[in-house]
Computed example of a mutant assay.
Amino acid sequence: MDKDTLFSAFGKWVAPINPNIIPNWQSTTTLDRYVKKLDTLVFLYIFIEAQLEKRKGLRSIMRKLEHDEEFQKQLGIASISASQLSRKNNQLDPEVLQAILCNLITQLHRDARPVSGRIGTVKIIDSSTISVCLQRYKWATFRKTKAGVKLHLRVAFADPDHVYPDKAVVTPARPADRSQKDVLIDESDVTYLMDRGYLDYGKYDSYCERGIRFVSRLKDNAVVEEVEELSVNTDSDIIRDVKVVLGKAHKRMQHPFV
């Protein structure tokens, strides 16, 4: 399929995908070896359409292709079975998809401009736990009766029109969210927003030393020590401005927050 001939709404969705990434993988791996119809790029386009249209399963995807001649022309195939889709899904190397994602992120970074020159780009980090079959995913330790994976996601907010996934890490569900902080928080020219699951006073001290800006929710039992009262303009909406230190005893932070 030649993406340059796509003029439909769907074609505009997939146009930013760099199809040259696939041949690069084909030259060094068994990707698409002996494949005559359902190659990786066609498979990717099929599942992008399925995601956009919120299709319920493989048979729904199959029926869409069977009854849509325009979609058939765009893909270059007339039909596909649910079993073929399932086999391809099981065989596909996730690193190929990671390479495509990284390429799309690079394009977005190039086109997006920060919402503010003072705080730069805002990056939000959070995680989602996904339950999976214990028999098939024994490596994904979670609970006695089921397995689970955790998607740690970093989303970049450049401005209201540029919000996009920036980095993703998949781990077993059991490790705590904060175990991936070093992977997700690695730049000093952005402001990070995170939930209380990433709370770690030792890391916060490290961020202060490295000049990494961040905003985090605190736990209800957090110890907050006021160390200095700062002046506030009389015409300001701010009620109080206080310099504080978090934690106590050996967990007390070295750097105050303003």
Score class of each variant (00 low, 15 high):
63 R>D: 04
64 K>R: 08
65 L>M: 11
65 L>H: 12
65 L>E: 09
66 E>T: 10
67 H>S: 12
67 H>I: 07
67 H>R: 11
67 H>L: 15
68 D>Q: 13
68 D>F: 06
70 E>W: 11
70 E>R: 10
70 E>A: 15
71 F>M: 10
72 Q>K: 10
72 Q>N: 13
73 K>F: 14
73 K>C: 15
74 Q>S: 13
75 L>V: 15
77 I>H: 03
77 I>Q: 11
77 I>N: 02
77 I>A: 06
77 I>D: 02
78 A>R: 02
79 S>I: 06
79 S>C: 10
80 I>K: 03
80 I>N: 00
81 S>H: 11
81 S>P: 00
83 S>H: 05
84 Q>D: 01
86 S>P: 01
86 S>A: 12
87 R>N: 14
88 K>V: 03
89 N>D: 11
89 N>K: 11
90 N>C: 14
92 L>K: 09
92 L>A: 13
93 D>E: 14
93 D>W: 07
95 E>L: 15
96 V>E: 06
97 L>P: 06
99 A>D: 13
101 L>P: 03
101 L>V: 00
101 L>Y: 00
101 L>T: 04
101 L>D: 00
101 L>M: 01
102 C>P: 08
103 N>E: 03
103 N>V: 03
104 L>Y: 07
104 L>A: 02
105 I>S: 01
106 T>H: 02
107 Q>R: 07
107 Q>P: 08
107 Q>A: 11
107 Q>M: 07
108 L>S: 08
108 L>P: 02
109 H>Y: 07
109 H>T: 12
109 H>R: 07
109 H>N: 14
110 R>C: 12
110 R>Q: 14
111 D>N: 13
111 D>H: 08
112 A>M: 11
112 A>Y: 06
113 R>A: 15
113 R>F: 13
115 V>G: 09
115 V>W: 06
115 V>Y: 03
115 V>M: 05
116 S>L: 07
116 S>N: 00
118 R>I: 15
118 R>T: 02
118 R>W: 01
119 I>D: 06
119 I>E: 10
120 G>H: 10
121 T>G: 01
123 K>R: 12
123 K>M: 08
123 K>A: 06
124 I>K: 02
125 I>K: 01
126 D>V: 14
127 S>F: 08
127 S>C: 12
127 S>G: 14
127 S>H: 00
128 S>T: 14
128 S>M: 07
128 S>C: 06
130 I>A: 05
131 S>T: 14
131 S>D: 03
131 S>A: 04
132 V>M: 12
133 C>P: 05
133 C>Q: 12
133 C>W: 05
134 L>S: 04
136 R>T: 11
138 K>H: 03
138 K>L: 08
139 W>D: 07
140 A>C: 14
140 A>W: 06
140 A>H: 00
142 F>D: 05
143 R>L: 04
